[in-house]
Amino acid sequence: MKGLFFLMSAFLLTSCAALPTIQEPTAGQAKKSVACPSPFLTEKTRFIHAIDVQAAGKTKTVMIGVTVADPATRTFSCAIMSTEGMAVFEAVSGKEGVNVTRALPPFDAPDFARNMMDDMELIFLEPAGVVAGKGVFAGGEFVCRRRQERGGWVDVVAGHEGRIQIRRYSECGALERTVNLNGNSRDAYKTIELQSAGLMGYSLMMTLIESEVVRDIPAAQK
């Protein structure tokens, strides 16, 4: 039992890591970037993406994902369907939590919905929480670090060649998710690459099929 405890403790300790160091920008770098990178949505938008699910570098399957994200209310509606059009998962997320309306196996697994909504939030919405650091990484990429209200950290990094990278860390600094976006533009969500860290890590390569701004109809006009 002591051995198991030791192993578990060792695993937990090695899972944690120091957050990447943020340095003060040089005079030249400071002139280039004064604001935090923000590719995130500013209005309610509907996306339809092809989702290439990969593990160990190989494609496992391809699905179609529909997401409606509202940055004003920080709410989501999501659906996943097969390429043949069979809906396998539908859920909405809001202040009251996640409400799953359809989940066929394996999408009915515990925590799947919550984890998926967290991933959607990471991709589409400006991170909630206070800016805890701002500067550059050793490689010269500009970064803003936020302390999440529910614990953990999120770095939004303006990489070279205009690409944006979002990294989510656990409370103890372990990297949990990495998101790569096209850039700080209207095309930011044309291709999205999400990588999940860990032993059961996976990658989602999302390619935009179509998107549109959603204008809610006032209740009186419905």
């Binding site: 097969s82 059009g85 069979m86 999408f107």
Partner: peptide, 11 residues
């Protein structure tokens, strides 16, 4: 993560 989905009705 995604091991099984059923396209049965459409099929």
């Amino acid at each position: 993560m995604i091991r099984h989905f059923c396209a049965k009705p459409i099929c």
